[in-house]
């Protein structure tokens, strides 16, 4: 469904992503692991069209994406919940969700999807008219995910959805990801919490300073010594 080939992305003259190749199959949950600064967010931002790659190719459902402006990529069915949530803090929950559906014209479908987000995260429904900035970190994360779902993406990219969340909240988020997968949404997940991510990922890629150093199924990576040492804190 999504194919990234030899992707190189730079900030100024410094390459942050140095030629990575990976694939996300339809209906899968795929995770990108890596230490701070490995290039995970940079990768997602280039898939979304916020960054222009220096070289390499990004293909989605047989169509080449790199070079398209970000709003066209959203129209193709790719949504991103960015690192640090990036909500429109002064706007209400409802307005944030409406902006998530900006590219859509089917008003009734938008309404239905909004109700679905409220079903998934009842606290958002109860306080839908309050400004997003007034919510707790975990609640804001729910809103960020909900907002990304509002464009009915085929591919949903989540950049560290569990950042700063309690274990119980992290579990809720991970359960939501599973539910979305069951609904047929393909997911590309960037996580610091490798344990949680690998437990539900079909496949994982490990990035180090802009390179993919290895990849395997989620289950195998959970048992992999290198992963256990670096990302799961085991000796």
């Amino acid at each position: 469904m999504l194919e990234v080939k030899d992707l190189v992305v730079a900030y100024g003259r410094v390459n942050a992503v140095k030629g990575i190749t990976f694939e996300v199959g339809k209906g899968q949950v795929v995770t990108l692991l890596g230490t701070n600064g490995a290039g995970k967010s940079t990768t997602l931002r280039s898939i979304s069209g916020l960054l222009k790659p220096v070289s390499g190719e990004i293909w989605f459902e047989g169509e080449r994406l790199d070079g398209l402006p970000a709003h066209k990529i959203v129209e193709r069915g790719i949504a991103q919940s960015p690192e640090g949530r990036r909500l429109f803090r002064q706007m209400s929950v409802e307005d944030n969700l409406k902006l998530g559906a900006f590219s859509r014209k089917d008003t009734s479908g938008v309404k239905a999807d909004m109700d679905r987000v409220y079903d998934l995260f009842p606290v958002l429904g109860e306080r839908r008219t309050e400004a997003a900035g007034l919510f707790s970190g975990g609640e804001q994360q729910m809103l960020a995910i909900g907002r990304a779902m509002m464009c009915r993406p085929k591919l949903l990219m989540l950049d560290e959805p569990s950042m700063g969340l309690s274990p119980i909240m992290t579990q809720t988020i991970m359960r939501t990801i599973k539910e979305l997968q069951a609904d047929g949404v393909t997911i590309l997940l960037v996580e610091q919490n490798a344990q949680a991510a690998l437990s539900l990922a079909d496949k994982g890629y490990v990035l180090e300073v802009g390179h993919i150093v290895f990849s395997d199924s989620g289950r195998n990576l959970l048992g992999d010594d290198r992963v256990r040492r670096t990302y799961l804190g085991a000796d």
């Binding site: 069209g49 970000a70 709003h71 960015p82 990036r86 907002r147 990304a148 464009c151």
Partner: peptide, 14 residues
């Protein structure tokens, strides 16, 4: 408020 995030919403910033 946030041009990059606006683009992620599908807004044509131009």
């Amino acid at each position: 408020q946030d041009p990059d995030t606006a683009r992620l919403m599908g807004i044509n910033v131009d």
